[in-house]
Each structure stands twice: as C-alpha cells, then as structure tokens.
Design a protein around this nucleic acid. Structure first.
Lengths: 150, 150
DNA sequence: CTTGAATCATTCACGGTTTGAATCATTCTC
DNA sequence: GAGAATGATTCAAACCGTGAATGATTCAAG
C-alpha cells in the first residue's frame, strides 16, 4: 500500500545487476589466488574450454570465450610459454592452429579450479546446503542456456 | 588404469568461475542497454548506493563500491554533468563532499534498473518460476554477506 | 592449373578503464 | 598556532581488450 513507491529503499533486486557486481567481486578474489601460477581468469577459461573439447582452433576458442581472436593469440602465447598448451598445425587445414593441453596444463587447470572451489567454500558460508546446491544447479542452467563454456 | 579421472569431462562447477563468466556477460549486455542514457554500470552502482543511503561522502562511496577514491571523483563528475547528482559540502566537515540524488538522478536510476529487470526477463527464460525466485533470494543473501550495496 | 576470394593466425597501434602518487584544502591534536 | 591526519582532486601511467592491416593457406571457378 502506501509504500514510498518502492524505489526509495529497495536495493534493486535485478539479477543482471547483482550478477555483475558479485561476479566481479568473485573473479577479483579468485584472480588474486591464481596469480601465483602466472595466469588470470581468462587463461583458465581457455584451458577449461580445451579440456571440455568445446573448441580447439583459435578462432573457435575466440567464439566460445566471446573475445577477439587477437586476444586468443595472446593468451595462447602466454600459456605456451608456461608449457600449459602446445600449438599444432591442423594437418587437414594448415591455416588452423590447434591448441592441446599438456600435462602441465592439465595440472594447472586443476590447481586453478581447486582454488575456485576453495574460494566457493568461503563465499557460500551464508547459505544452507540446499541453497548451495540450488545455486550451483541454477547457474549451470543459465550458463548452458547462454551457450557458455560453463 | 582409469585415465580420464573425472577432470577430463566435468565442466568445473565452481561458483566463483561461473559467477565471473555469467556476471561479465550480463553486465556487458546491460551496459549496452543503458549506454543510451550516458551511463555505465559503475555509475548506476553509485546512484544505487546513494539511494540506499549506504554512503554519501565520496570516500565512503569508494569503500562500498570497492574502487579507488579517484574513480569516484570521475564518476561523480560525469553524473553531475548529467544532472543526476549534486555535490554539497558537508557543513559539519567541509572537507567532505556529500553527493545527493537529484530528481533527474532518481529517474535515471529507475530507468537503468528497469533496463536490468527487462534484461532479466530474457536471461531467465530457461528457469522455472521457483528457480527464478530462489536465484534472486540467494544472490541477495550472498551480496548481503559480502557487504555489497546489493 | 591459375587466379581471385575467403579463412585463420598474427602483429600492432590505439581507446577505455582503473589505479597510485602528488597536491591542495580542511580539520584534528597537542 | 604548528604539525599530523583526512577528504577531494588531478595527473601520469598500467593494464586489458579491440579492430585494422598483414601474411599464409585453402577454396571456388573458369
């Protein structure tokens, strides 16, 4: 009823807004923890896409990660320097550069995912077990619906 | 023996990871929709903090938004140019610059939140009504736990 | 075959965002 | 009052990502 037109006190429940803020916060914290490995979230996203087989040519990678192809070159360069991926010309089409995870890359990815899981533990302390499960499931559904390399 | 020990196929269910990716995606889409108003997500976050009374001096604002004080100056400059906020020297402590929402600012904030809500509608089409409600509630809880200006 | 268009990777210069250090005004402490 | 602390502001610089230009390879068509 006589609500002072809602706007004056309600903290804007928009998902887009909250997702953006929370996502930035979580990513920043996570970035701090994996920095010691010499990688940033984008690198891990690339490694993860490789493991999932979501893409292997650099152009496909750019599409799934939603970044410019030139950025993939840079990320791949750095990961190659770390020994986490190796570039192999596609024998069938020698324009294409296929990226493959090395054993080092697998290990690196595992470490970074481990760091994310550890951070999760801290983030969700305010949530019940049911809520945690629900959140994981729902975010997975959203990512899937958006065609993101979850 | 059992080679691809789980890691080989699972899409990394880490919340931190997913929040980061989804948050960036949602924010980018939202940014595109509010760009016509001459603002970016950070501006809206500032306006929202003002409305919530979470902070009014620029230094407090920087703390709640988790950005450098110098950035608040810049954002406030731009919002002032738009007529969305006005600066008033705190009479009690004339070093402090208090930011107050103008009627234009209220309207601008409403428009931007409206745009976020509209975007939400599209994002959650894959979710059931129950899931949408749960997501809203859980994200709110998380933001609250992190002390973020939800 | 050979030519010209399309595709993939790469390089490079640039724009946008954010930060940290330096500066100035004001207030607090003694 | 003098000097340390606090808030706002400016400025140069770092960082991240993009788009345009280049080179290599493949594809299509005569």
């Amino acid at each position: 009823m006589g609500m002072d037109q809602g706007s004056a006190r309600t903290p804007a429940t928009s998902l887009s807004f909250r997702l953006g803020v929370l996502g930035a916060m979580a990513e920043a914290r996570w970035a701090g923890r994996i920095a010691g490995h010499g990688v940033k979230p984008k690198h891990v996203a690339l490694l993860s896409s490789l493991r999932l087989g979501a893409a292997d040519s650099q152009l496909e990678l750019a599409a799934t990660l939603r970044v410019a192809p030139s950025l993939v070159v840079l990320l791949a360069d750095q990961l190659e320097t770390l020994g986490a991926v190796s570039r192999e010309r596609d024998p069938g089409d020698r324009r294409r550069q296929r990226l493959v995870l090395t054993a080092v890359g697998e290990r690196l990815l595992d470490d970074c995912v481990g760091a994310a899981d550890a951070l999760d533990e801290e983030l969700v302390t305010a949530l019940s077990a049911t809520e945690r499960a629900a959140l994981t499931r729902i975010l997975g559904k959203l990512a899937g619906a958006e065609g993101l390399p979850v």
